[in-house]
Amino acid sequence: MTHRAVSGTPPMAPPMHHARSDEEIARALTSTSSARFSERLIGYALAACGLLSVLTTVGIVAVLIEEALQFFGDVSAVDFLFGTTWTALFANGSFGVLPLVSATVLIAALSMVVAIPVGLLVAIYLSEYASPRVRAVVKPVMELLAGVPTIVFGYFALTFITPSILRKVVPGTEVFNVMAAAIAVGIMVVPLVASLSEDALAAVPRALREGGYGMGATKMEVATQVVVPAALSGIVASIVLAISRAFGETMIVAIAAGSKAQIADDPFESAQTMTGFMVQAFSGDVETGSTVYKSLFAVGLLLFLITLVLNLISNRIVARFREAYD
């Protein structure tokens, strides 16, 4: 870069002439710039990127429904939805999905017994109590925990939770069991519940807390009786999302809960979830177009619908919560 002075441009410049005449400017103003066309092209390209996400949804729905419909040609929808025997991988198997659903629901419910209290207490701790120094430890731990792949939690459930804890406390526990999977799923979703609930707690206006303190309430009373109720919808939304995640969780249950498709009533026995069945089937050879192959999509469709409804509910709650405080 050269820094030589431009001749004839002292600090106080004499009147200068603009490079363009009035006519030139007028002509430029009324012309259609070529940039305008390429701008529009770029706009379309970006919109196409956004549209791909719509296509993804359409693709998911189309694939699931198409194969599921074919499946319902082989097996009646009523037998599928209300049947209590699932022996899909046997010859002339039976396709009653209730055993898979019962295991899925039981694991999701038990996992919430871990995730809701722990997640909520951690959220309250981080938002209302923790000193910056403790925060600096707990926050990164939560982020790390959230980043641990589910296969690792599965390994942890199978090789630690079952042998080192459950079988010591409840001696009859099977090697593969619902409880170990549920505990691991619960730990896995703690960061989700904690971080979303903490956001909800942090969004509660200061004035509300001060109102509580002004009436002589202790810190705990303010936290549990003022802040938590005020943030309740945000907390509920985080729990609904966590339930949805637990329903769709795959590798933990595939590894730790086993593959015995039976109505799940004893958490210390083995059971197979919807996702667990999919993993078992795909780990072997499934012939494309067979009834088993199609049944996988029917189970997938059911899972997709359940989680979709849960996600929509959660979204709805969050949207309403935002309205309340914005």
């Binding site: 009035d22 400017i25 007028a26 430029a28 103003l29 009324t30 012309s31 710039s33 305008r36």
Partner: peptide
């Protein structure tokens, strides 16, 4: 009206207006 042109006309490209 600027240089004889109504620059508030939607047909006028605002980008060119701002360059001047």
């Amino acid at each position: 009206r600027y240089h004889g042109v109504n620059i508030n006309d939607p047909a006028i490209d605002p980008v060119i207006v701002r360059r001047n």
